[in-house]
Design a protein around this nucleic acid. Structure first.
Lengths: 113, 113
DNA sequence: TCTTATACATAAAACTTCTAGGTATGTAAA
DNA sequence: TTTACATACCTAGAAGTTTTATGTATAAGA
């Protein structure tokens, strides 16, 4: 998609935040949710999403649970306890990042008269 | 450094914004400026910075001018005309990005009573 | 003299993401 | 009925950026 370079490196944080908020989600659901929240501006590709989910699972951040709905497979992911702790750190990093980027883009004028 | 993953993909935008603001800067100056603005939280490594500057120059975004100060070489970079136009686009993308990330992290509650 | 700061540079490895494919089911349109 | 689209998963290879680890050189300070 037309995703700018800027989103690179933010995928894990996005996934973890969504799972923190919604309890459990499956891959396709995550892509649709992100598209909806960002009004179509950010489209997570499957080639990025699935490897990322598998990696987070391997790291013990996520747990999987397979369900069959309408004869179609769904793999629901949710945060482990370790994952919840890590999510707190990631969100804090995200806040710092946003604050820093805003400082760079919108520097405080020096206090002169 | 302890730079989180989130900064990946934002280096070009940072460089371009700083040059838009300061007219011309040299590599080492950019690293110091970023460190100062972010209170030490973001350190741009040379291994990332110099290749990025060279690439932006090759793309016609930046112009170089070599000066010798105190017997040391300095390569001053400044935005070309095309670079200035592109910077406007990048900053607009950055605003969208920040807005989208904030929507994800801090979703608007539905308007129910 | 040794360390730190200034100032540039690059090559190899690591890492993430994109592109481009693949499988399969259900539904709606032509 | 065949085509298209949405749902739902997956992966391999290419592309791209950044990190790590170097290297060179001058100036200043301990």
């Amino acid at each position: 998609m037309k995703n700018s370079q800027l989103y690179k490196g933010s995928l894990n944080t996005i996934i973890m935040k969504l799972l923190e908020e919604n309890g459990k989600m499956y891959g396709y659901e995550i892509t649709q949710k992100v598209k909806a929240i960002t009004a179509g501006e950010l489209n997570i590709t499957e080639g990025a999403l699935y490897p990322a989910l598998h990696k987070l699972e391997a790291e013990g951040i996520l747990d999987v649970e397979i369900e069959k709905v309408d004869n179609r497979m769904r793999k629901y992911y949710k945060l482990t306890e370790a994952g919840e702790k890590e999510t707190i750190n990631r969100l804090s990093e995200l806040e710092d990042f946003i604050r820093n980027m805003q400082s760079l883009v919108n520097p405080k004028p020096s206090l002169e008269f």
